[in-house]
Design a binder for these strands. Structure first.
Lengths: 222, 222
DNA sequence: CGACTCCTTGACAGCGTTCAACAGTAGTGG
DNA sequence: CCACTACTGTTGAACGCTGTCAAGGAGTCG
């Protein structure tokens, strides 16, 4: 659901090195729920999220969904892909992204552009690191631990804000953690009863963390 | 448990491009159960498995273990690591590896060695791809589907041999799939009762696949 | 207001874990 | 060679966590 395009936009300096290196980025806005790209489609672009959030997921043949990652403002998307996308990407709130031709990026790699090559490798490595932690959570944690670990990670990635606004719905959290919405809801209620956090506002999407160390205890992480 | 070292060994050509690029590899043998490296240790070497098999895993603070991957003959290890290893690696059978200084590898990257840079990126990308599939299995599959998917993957990686010899024990499979040994054993028994495969030999480590398409059905993969 | 979506809560069932017992194999030492 | 032990894998039974099903509350939007 394309809304607006601005080509050849100058790149501000708060972005990461990779973005700075490549001069020609375009902007694109996606409404909540719209699709950036689908699994098995040719991967023509790389993306950087300016504002909003994106989920990437795979499906089993019978429709079960597993969200591989949430991508927040500042995150890159589809850098690690080969010729085709290995997952589907959808905006989970209204989202602004910058995108650039993959061809252009890989042309730089082919020319031996060392800084760009290093940043691509770093981005892929960080993605892998997150995937490895995700595997640990999915394989060996109980539902309460999963939700605690999820909140901790989100809190960290959002730079520990006073009020953490969840961009995703309960069913997204559930499909990220390999659970059901009901279990996610029960775990959140349980942590709230422990006074580890409290909800702010009525939609139960805004969370105020009261005790990060207690939350870390509940997560039982390494 | 170091047994033998041979330095400055010539690299035969059946290895991948990365191995061919770097001239100076040394050989090392590990007994079953011994440790190649531990989580959080400085990552000084990259490894390639010549013969045998290796498991890499993380642990939760209370000891629960999650195996992130099995590495078989031909696979590279620790290419994707940063300064320190993010997981522990242990030989699960007697294993021969070649190893090389990471410093030397990254010196080539710094010089703008394009072929080496591309192969490193490809290796990391393949590792990530496997992790993504692993996430799908861990998050959204039932125990029988997990074991079926595991057997399919191993069969594929071993090039569909007549007799598939499992290098790992049941508890390794369990910790890879986020299950218990008992559940793994029950799933295997169930698939065997369906005549999808049969055990050969008494240790129940050798498997003869009879019906790969039926196994794929049981795995319900994408 | 009514229809819709999202979230929560309760009751219940089922899958997988836990606990336990046992069989088969490998390794060790007499 | 056999006895002994340790280890691995399988199977059974009971428990419990989490999924399933159902209902209801709260917010949103036309």
């Amino acid at each position: 659901m394309l809304i607006r395009v601005e080509t050849a936009k100058a790149v501000p300096n708060q972005l990461n090195e990779l973005a700075r290196q490549d001069a020609l980025w375009s902007e694109l806005k996606y409404r909540c729920g719209s699709t950036l790209f689908r699994e098995a489609e040719p991967a023509d672009y790389v993306y950087q999220i300016r504002e909003g959030a994106v989920r990437t997921y795979k499906r089993l043949s019978d429709g079960r969904r597993q969200i591989g990652a949430f991508h927040l403002a500042g995150d890159m998307l589809a850098v690690e892909n080969c010729e085709t996308h290995r997952c589907t990407a959808e905006a989970i709130v209204d989202t602004t992204v910058w995108f650039a031709k993959r061809r252009r990026l890989f042309a730089r790699l082919a020319k031996g552009d060392i800084p760009v090559a290093n940043h691509v490798r770093e981005l892929v490595t960080r993605t892998l690191e997150r995937a490895e932690n995700h595997i640990l959570v999915l394989g060996r944690q109980k539902s309460l631990e999963k939700v605690a670990a999820f909140l901790l990670e989100l809190d960290r990635r959002l730079k520990q804000p006073d009020v953490m606004v969840l961009p995703m719905r309960r069913c997204d959290i559930a499909d990220y953690l390999g659970m059901t919405v009901e279990s996610v809801s029960r775990a959140l209620s349980s942590l709230q009863e422990e006074r580890i956090f409290s909800f702010k506002g009525s939609a139960h999407r805004e969370i105020v963390l009261h005790d990060r160390s207690k939350l870390a205890q509940r997560a039982t992480l390494a």
